[in-house]
Design a protein around this nucleic acid. Structure first.
Lengths: 125, 125
DNA sequence: CCATAAAACATACATATGTAGTAGAAACTA
DNA sequence: TAGTTTCTACTACATATGTATGTTTTATGG
């Protein structure tokens, strides 16, 4: 799995949320954000297809329908691992900045702790 | 502050750790990792200089000495904010993946909790 | 069945980045 | 001081990505 660019990720987000879509539908899903030209989405989709990130699932009328070929989890994992690569795999800088910027609340941490405890319990069984 | 590439970040890491260095010294600091050609480091440094990421502090003999013009904290912050941009600012995917991949230990979380509590206390005073 | 609208496809171009070669200047050494 | 080493500065090229244009193909409504 290659690392997704911002635009690629946004396209994937549409496919993950709405399911299989045409290029036109993907383009129109860019609401609120700056909407790229139809052909910009198209070129990007074609390239993603070549890389195996999306695939054509069928043809309806004269247009193709594309679907996600990688999971959101895998894509996110790749992005995060890539970031950690900068820090030599250390999570500390990430945690420190999340906290320092106020993006991580005490509740978030408590929740993370629970998740961690649960996965630990699961691993033991 | 622009987002640093992997190579740029590695170069900065040398400057942050070892202080002001020549291009040769920066190149030689790539131990263990794949060592880029001297001119690769040079070109990258020149581009970083144009962007204001590093600056020439002095000339010794026939070579220039470069120093960091941005802090490690600012650079890390930029990288992390960039990642969060993918997730619409949500920290949850980051936390989930750090935990799921086993990169975040219970100790890390406890420590983060402490940092958070401390900064909260500081903010109150 | 044919005109038209929409989509497909191919091509192109700019920027960022990693990569490296080469020519000439500068400094050190014998 | 002349030769050698080492930098600098410039140039070049490949790949990835965002962006868009133009031409061809395909459906479909009249």
């Amino acid at each position: 799995m290659t690392k997704l660019s911002k635009l690629e990720y946004q396209i994937m987000e549409s496919l993950w949320v709405r399911g299989e879509l045409s290029i036109r539908e993907i383009q129109e899903s860019f609401q609120g954000k700056r909407v790229p030209a139809y052909t910009t989405v198209q070129t990007t989709i074609y390239r993603m297809e070549a890389k195996g990130t999306v695939l054509r699932v069928k043809k309806v009328g004269n247009f193709h329908i594309f679907g996600a070929a990688v999971s959101r989890e895998a894509a996110q994992r790749r992005l995060i691992d890539d970031l950690l690569g900068f820090f030599g795999g250390q999570t500390q800088p990430v945690m420190a900045h999340l906290i320092e910027s106020g993006k991580l609340s005490l509740e978030d941490i408590k929740e993370a702790e629970q998740v961690l405890l649960n996965s630990k319990r699961k691993a033991k069984r």
